[in-house]
Design a protein around this nucleic acid. Structure first.
Length: 564
RNA sequence: GUCCCAGUAGCUCAGUGGACAGAGCGGCUGCCUUCUAAGCAGCUGGCCGCGGGUUCGAAUCCUGCCUGGGACGCCA
């Protein structure tokens, strides 16, 4: 159990006792919130319960604080409980308990920070899901990093996580992509061919075409237009998906499953596809209506602003129809308890209708969470870079990683709340300098590793180190900071806000740098031997915290960082 | 026009009901004979977009406005 919960329970018990004693009479007890005070002079934890109770108890909040504080039973974790104006109760952790946590963290190792709030529930995080019509670009990278860090954290919080990429490989944009490749293919072989109006202009189309020529030759020229587009399209799509997978891999983003949109329309085991079943269910419950030759989903009945077409008058299902079938598959077929979709800002308008569709399918709409990852505006100095896949003028994930590096890139994207637009100054980001906070964190880990290496070289066995010798303020501060990780994991998993991770990482690094500066670990002085052993234990515990934090963010934890 | 997101230090951003508003970068000073100076210490710097409201208490909640971005298709 987290200390925070222990304190909350103790406060609740104290309030109950005060009520029995007749010292306090309240109509209703609000939720007891235990927070971390901004100012460390106020202790490690605090509650504002007396302030919130004052009205219904018709009493002075400071007096209430005193009455409750008097009845709080001290456990081994808590050193002191103190009422404070205007009506807080402050808690201070005991030094001996903090010291003991060094052992606990070391014992926990890679499971440090794990919790079980997820209780093994099946959750899918579906993210990136870029149409395979072009490479992943900078804007998608943000969602990719967000999704992977979130999935890591949910797994640490005890969820059974599946990371999925939805490949939109049906539909008209893919058709345009196929035709674009076909056009470049013919042009490369000296034929007259005109790019379709909605064609993709990027150089990568021509690259794919020439790769196909190298591998498969000019044979497609002899086929009918329709056959050639289909066959060349199949090859081009595979190439594109592979390229996307490799690019994402370069930034440490991997998936458990790549789900093809086309699977929704074909079912190997049963006569009905997911699409058939989802539509049948909607139809049964009266959510579909035919108007002017098309089939509509009546989402206005469920609070959406307008109805949406699911089957065009041409008989072709829309993208939205696929999405309905896909979510039917996620919930009804694969039985996920919870689904988190990460979409780009350009899809934000689709959230209400997707929620409505989930509800219409008979699922609980709250089991679907859609996170919107806002736009990334690119700049080179003062100049704004317009990103458009159609015109081919965009910065790819690959280019970004090559220039900035995986770790810096992940840190940079992760550190911002996804709901806010961000500016990415390529000039600044690509400048090699110490301006990047990622170095600050990794350097702390490298210093940490360096100490342990030296201890190892000198054959120092610190397994018998006595942690009760850790009384320096910087030592205790480091321990306190380490201990926030488990709370953070729970918080990130509950609020789906991974951007707290990098900020925590920075604070952990600060605590370590302070410790490093003021507490010499491996002493040359023989009489300091006991302290050396104790501090080595602390350093190894801190290493656990660094590794866990960095790995949740998907960043590397280098043992050395050498500057030329 | 309707809807969504944002506006906090020179810059990039944390902080969503509490106790004097934070970090990094930038700028100015200092600190390397012992575990990496990609570090540390100090200074500089903010009517938290503007106006009302709710509250014992508002950067945080409500409301109006201003500014910037996005979405509103039988495209995906």
């Amino acid at each position: 159990m987290l200390v925070r919960d222990t304190i909350a329970n103790a406060v609740a018990a104290a309030l109950e006792q005060a009520s029995r004693d007749g010292a306090i009479s309240v109509d209703s007890v609000p939720d007891i919130e235990i927070e971390r005070p901004n100012n460390s002079e106020h202790g490690d934890f605090a509650t504002n319960l007396p302030l919130r109770l004052a009205r219904s108890a018709r009493a002075n909040p400071l007096q209430l604080a005193q009455l409750i504080a008097d009845r709080i039973e001290l456990s081994s974790e808590i050193d002191s409980v103190a009422p404070a104006a205007p009506g807080f109760i402050n808690f201070k952790l005991s030094e001996s308990w903090l010291q003991q946590q060094v052992e606990t963290v070391r014992d926990a190792g890679d499971s440090f920070g794990a919790s079980n709030v997820g209780d093994g529930r099946k959750v899918m995080v579906e993210f990136v899901s870029v149409n395979p019509t072009g490479p992943v670009h900078v804007g998608h990278t943000r969602g990719a990093v967000l999704g992977s860090a979130l999935a890591n954290t949910l797994a640490a919080a005890g969820y059974d996580v599946t990371r999925e990429y939805y490949i939109n490989d049906a539909g008209s944009q893919m058709e345009a992509f196929y035709r674009s490749v076909w056009t470049r293919y013919r042009q490369a072989l000296g034929r007259d061919a005109e790019m379709p109006d909605n064609g993709y202009q990027g150089d990568y189309i021509a690259d794919i075409a020439s790769e196909i020529i190298d591998a498969n030759g000019p044979g497609y020229l002899d086929q009918s237009d329709a056959t050639a587009v289909r066959e060349i399209g199949d090859v081009a799509r595979e190439k594109m998906v592979t390229l996307i997978r490799d690019d994402l891999d370069a930034i440490g983003v991997t998936f458990d499953n790549w789900f093809s949109e086309r699977w929704l329309f074909q079912s190997p085991d049963t006569p009905d596809s997911d699409y058939d079943r989802a539509m049948a269910r909607l139809r049964e419950d009266g959510h579909l209506a035919e108007r002017s030759g098309a089939l509509w989903f009546i989402s206005t009945a469920l609070g959406d602003e307008r109805d949406n077409v699911v089957v065009r008058s041409s008989g072709e299902p829309t993208y939205f129809a696929s999405d309905i079938a896909y979510h039917y598959n996620k919930f009804a077929q694969r039985e996920f308890d919870r689904v988190i979709d990460i979409w780009g800002a350009d899809h934000q308008g689709h959230v209400p209708r997707m929620k409505a569709a989930v509800q219409a399918l008979g699922m609980e709409p709250d089991d679907l969470t859609v996170l919107i990852s806002q736009m990334v505006t690119l700049k080179r100095g003062d100049e704004t870079v317009r990103a458009s896949k159609r015109t081919g003028d965009f910065v790819t994930l690959r280019e970004l990683v090559d220039e900035v590096g995986t770790d810096a890139c992940r840190y940079f994207f992760l550190a911002r709340a996804p709901s806010t637009q961000m500016e990415f100054d390529l000039e600044l980001a690509t400048r090699e300098s110490s301006e990047n906070p990622v170095y600050y964190v990794q350097y702390a880990h490298a210093r940490n590793a360096s100490i342990l290496n030296l201890a190892h070289e000198r054959g120092i066995d610190y397994s018998r180190g006595d942690v009760s010798l850790l009384i320096h303020p910087n030592e205790l501060e480091l321990i306190r900071t380490m201990l926030r990780l488990p709370e953070l994991v729970v918080q990130v998993a509950e609020n789906l806000e991974p951007h707290h991770l990098p900020h925590y990482a920075t604070e952990l690094a600060t605590a370590f740098h302070h410790f490093y500066e003021n507490c010499r670990v491996i002493s040359t002085n023989a009489e300091d031997n006991d302290l050396t052993l104790a501090r080595l234990k602390l350093v190894s515990a801190a290493q656990v915290a660094f590794r866990r934090t960095l790995s949740l963010m998907g960043m590397s934890a280098p043992d050395r960082m050498d500057r030329d």
